[in-house]
Design a binder for these strands. Structure first.
Length: 206
DNA sequence: ACATTAAGTGATT
DNA sequence: AATCACTTAATGT
């Protein structure tokens, strides 16, 4: 085992992990867990990476985050202790090795080893940060809709009108960059929804 | 004609 | 989607 990975664990804890953990290897694309599955052990990634995704009813998947060397699955931690099924899907992004630790050890180690508590805490913190990023990009991918709404709002929701504003102005209102607005406007123009002029946008409300 | 500002583009992360 | 670097087009003086 790689001692460097567990350098801030108490020797005693490392010993326990080695004793109770089982090694598991996944090839690219192999699934570790899917929504609905119950988990009876939590993984600690030794090498490679796992892609964690959320799945909606129709099977559309949205990326949540990657688990890499030294990471553990925050979902597993909560699912395990609450005996709830998984609500995410985990697939190997590359050949991945991990250590599977039985659930029942968690609580014991939690109270026994401060470093384990820290490890778990940090796992949550990192996951949370990654999730925020995912949320951000999701929220921002609605930019085309936000722009279209803004234009209609500025046009006063009336028949064919002009909006007097530069791309810069619009981008400032939407908290995005001028280039993005330019490109989205061009897209809208291609769809025949608007016509662009200098300092002015013409809404084509048929 | 020249300078300034708005708009368009491509590449990169 | 954001940033950067750069080009091109429109406008004002």
């Amino acid at each position: 085992m790689q001692p460097n990975l567990f350098h801030d664990f108490e020797p005693k804890l490392v010993e326990e992990i080695e004793k109770s953990g089982t090694l598991k290897k996944l090839e690219v694309g192999e699934e570790l867990m899917r929504p609905g599955m119950f988990i009876r052990s939590i993984p600690i990634i030794l090498s490679g990476s796992l892609k964690i995704m959320r799945q909606d009813e129709k099977g559309n998947e949205t990326f949540l985050y990657f688990l890499q060397k030294g990471d553990t699955c925050a979902m597993s931690l909560t699912c395990c202790s609450a005996s709830k099924p998984s609500n995410v899907r985990a697939v190997a992004e590359e050949p991945t090795e991990m250590l599977l630790v039985p659930v029942d050890k968690l609580d014991v180690w939690m109270s026994l080893y401060p470093s384990w508590k820290t490890f778990v805490f940090q796992a949550y913190q990192r996951r949370f940060e990654d999730m925020l990023e995912a949320v951000d990009s999701l929220a921002f991918r609605k930019m085309d809709e936000r722009l279209w709404r803004l234009l209609r709002k500025k046009a006063g929701l009336q028949e064919k009108r002009y909006v007097y504003a530069t791309h810069q102005d619009l981008s400032a209102e939407l908290n995005t960059s001028r280039e993005v607005v330019t490109r989205l406007l061009k897209k809208l123009e291609g769809l025949g929804k608007i016509k662009t002029h200098r300092n002015r946008i013409e809404l084509m409300l048929k």
